Computed example of a mutant assay.
Amino acid sequence: MPLDVILLVLFGALLHATWNAIIKAGTDKSLDAALISAGGAVAALPFLAFLPLPNAAAWPFIGVSAILQFAYFQLVAGAYRAGDIGLVYPLMRGCAPLLIAATSSFVLGETLSGGALIGTMTICAGILTLAFEARHGSRHAIMLALINACVIATYTYVDGIGARISGNAISYTLWMSLLPPVLLFAWAISRRGARVVAIHVRVHWWRGLIGGSGSIASYGLALWAMTKAPVATVAALRETSILFALVISVVVLKERASPWRYLAGVIIAAGGLILKLG
């Protein structure tokens, strides 16, 4: 994989870890997830006029992606309510690229090189190692995380294909970001009422704008990379976001790190090196 692609995906991984930390730190995870989705849409709007429309063949993928993104954000919020981030995040992000690597030859006809396959498996192993320190979490949290891993793998395929046929990965990403917040806020209002939602937005709008900008930039970089490299390897490299999440937890949040976290960091870094050399 080219070095410039690797560096941009790693930067996107840092942004991804940041917006997940914002959701986990919030007091109302469902509404914070909706806010971040809306923040991504707001950040996208100013750029739409300067980019070409995606090719017509890509619009069905944008529609399907919106539904999957709605499910993803709901499951993220539910999983963070049910379990610790040390268990939930590694399972969600570690299992998804494993699913993609196992099925990409059937879905996309992509064959990974030996080095790319080893690097992908190494990164996934490092991420899943983190689950050992929180392996006594609730079954409900584990189930939600595994279901979301399937959703992540599915929308990765949908958007990976959609970005390739759209003619412009950035344009695809920005248009794709507009519908999920509509679905998320419509659902929130139907369940919680317009007044509760409006109060949360008025107080915490800045969280959505910061997290949403990071979210859309992170995913846009990943989709662009998928036009330059196999989807499975990009998906695996993107999940190094957990490594940045560990740094944030230790340096910023002053959380204690177990030996499992340091071991996982070494394994993930080794996987990234293998991807570069492979």
Rank of each mutant, 00 (worst) to 15 (best):
M1N: 10
D4C: 02
I6A: 14
F11S: 15
G12Y: 14
A13S: 15
L15C: 15
H16S: 12
A17R: 14
W19C: 08
A21I: 00
I23F: 08
T27L: 09
T27R: 15
L35G: 03
S37R: 07
A44S: 14
A44D: 04
A44Q: 04
L45T: 06
L48T: 00
F50N: 09
F50K: 11
P52Y: 08
A56F: 00
G63T: 02
G63S: 11
V64I: 15
A71S: 15
V76M: 12
A77R: 13
G78T: 00
A79K: 13
A79C: 10
Y80E: 09
R81Q: 14
A82G: 11
D84C: 07
Y89M: 08
P90T: 02
L91R: 06
M92Y: 10
M92T: 05
M92C: 06
R93G: 04
C95Y: 11
A96M: 07
L98F: 06
L99A: 13
A101V: 06
S104C: 13
L108Q: 04
L112Q: 15
L112T: 11
L112Y: 14
G115W: 13
L117T: 07
I118W: 14
I118H: 11
M121A: 14
M121F: 14
T122N: 06
T122F: 06
I123C: 05
C124K: 09
G126N: 03
G126A: 05
I127D: 04
L128A: 02
A131I: 01
F132I: 00
R135E: 01
H136F: 00
S138E: 08
H140M: 08
H140C: 00
A141Y: 07
A141L: 03
A141G: 07
M143N: 15
N148F: 06
N148E: 07
I152W: 05
A153C: 02
V158Y: 03
D159L: 01
G162I: 01
G162F: 01
G162Y: 05
A163T: 04
I165S: 06
I165G: 06
G167P: 05
S171H: 04
L174T: 01
W175K: 06
M176L: 13
P180W: 03
L183V: 00
F185G: 01
F185W: 02
W187I: 00
S190Q: 13
A194G: 01
A194Y: 01
V201C: 02
V201Y: 00
R202I: 00
H204G: 01
H204D: 00
H204M: 01
G208A: 07
G208W: 01
I210G: 12
S213L: 12
S213T: 14
G214M: 14
S215L: 12
A217F: 13
A217L: 15
L221R: 13
L221G: 11
M226P: 08
T227Y: 05
T227Q: 10
A229C: 09
P230G: 02
V231Y: 08
V234M: 05
A235V: 02
R238E: 03
R238S: 03
L243K: 07
L246I: 10
V250K: 13
V252W: 15
K254S: 12
W260F: 09
V266K: 09
V266D: 07
G271P: 03
I274Y: 12
I274R: 12
G278T: 08
